[in-house]
Design a protein around this nucleic acid. Structure first.
Lengths: 220, 220
DNA sequence: CCGCTTATATTGTCAGACAATTTCTGCGAA
DNA sequence: TTCGCAGAAATTGTCTGACAATATAAGCGG
């Protein structure tokens, strides 16, 4: 009766490739060949092809006809556009999540405390993880599976930017200040204000990222 | 030097299936088997499978492990969630598109005139087409490919609802009134107001659709 | 009419093949 | 040396055929 359905071969391949991409083992822009993975993982070409396709539609890889797939890397403009869409969706998440979070604010407060600790102790990696949790809490509380799925895809396309952001200590401090303001607005029931803060928060990330050097992006 | 790259076999299959779904030849919820299309289209299973996958990630079909694909049909809740996301994105489109449209408002005005004509002559099919063009104009003018692509996917999942909506004449009139208000707001440079109108416009569609009978949706 | 066993259909995955397309390599010309 | 091109090698796109695993339909007995 279990829903277990042990992972299919394709799913395993998807998991394996995802891990290698996210760990940085496969760099943005790098080409993946079918043969590489049929050999390395001992599966057939059809399976690798199917995994490639799923990962491409998931935003992690980019597919080009007759040229295979590469680890997705966006152009400056592409990142800009992504943040526009992401901003709109995160704001929606705040709108939908606020009442839910307000009903049980402990989780948000705890998270904020943890974030503060990570910042003051200078643990950037932990801050990054908690930051994701922070946004994840809103998305989850919003109770909209499609919204969550859409944002997940978007984030897949820019996972590689997280690293670059962490080195900007000052920006991290700003980011955390914005989190605090957001938490305060939510707990005070200032819905409208919370949405604006989230929008500005995403905009700030966008601006920061746009300031990165050109060699982090592909040409347009 | 041409960018022509004549369509691949998979693309042809995708096109063929899309056409049959959108024409109603394949009904929402209906299961598609691989063998049916290998025979009918004279292509191999691998090709059909790949087409199925693309269509599923595109929102037109739904994929279930070991059970193949079906023409996507959403539950009441699913439609609700989709309209929440769609609303946020259409509002973004208005925000981004307004300045562009304002620079050359002729196109929007023409479109509105056509819509009015369709409404007064009671040509619902034409209204539906123009309605899509109307929204398409904003999305296109927004100049954000990712936004356009995301909205396209969403619309793929609810194409089948358009038909149901057209029978509600009164609602069509309301819809057109909202279009007019939106056009006015844009041309008057009332950005903020235009966004609100678009939001309400999508909300109205959502409400209308939620009023449809249960047998238009899947169970939750 | 219901539930169970069995037969049939369908999906998941593999192996191997070949044409079309892209990428690499080495050589001759500017 | 650098550039461009022809041929070689690699890679993708697609097909055929196969078989195990899973799901669906058909019968059968109660």
């Amino acid at each position: 009766m279990r829903d277990h359905a042990h992972a299919s071969t394709v799913e395993n391949v998807v998991t394996a490739i995802t891990a290698r991409v996210r760990s940085g083992n496969l760099a943005p822009g790098q080409r993946l060949t079918e043969s590489e993975f049929t050999q390395r993982l001992g599966v057939s070409r059809s399976t690798v092809r199917e995994a490639f396709q799923r990962l491409a539609s998931d935003g992690l890889l980019a597919f080009e006809p007759n040229r295979g797939v590469t680890v997705r890397q966006l152009s400056r403009k592409g990142v800009d556009q992504l943040f526009q869409v992401r901003g709109a969706l995160e704001v929606l998440a705040v709108r939908l999540a606020a009442p839910v979070i307000l009903a049980e604010p402990a989780k948000l407060e705890t998270l904020q405390t943890e974030l503060d600790k990570a910042v003051s102790s200078g643990d950037m990696q932990r801050f990054s993880d908690l930051n994701q949790e922070f946004h994840g809490l809103f998305v989850k509380s919003a109770g909209n599976a499609l919204l969550a799925e859409t944002l997940r895809r978007l984030n897949n396309s820019i996972y590689w930017l997280q690293f670059r952001m962490l080195v900007h200590r000052q920006e991290v401090l700003n980011s955390n200040a914005q989190h605090q303001a957001l938490v305060r607005a939510i707990l005070d029931g200032q819905l409208q204000r919370a949405e604006v803060i989230m929008f500005d928060h995403i905009e700030a990330s966008r601006t920061l990222i746009q300031s990165l050097a050109d060699d982090h992006f592909t040409a347009d």
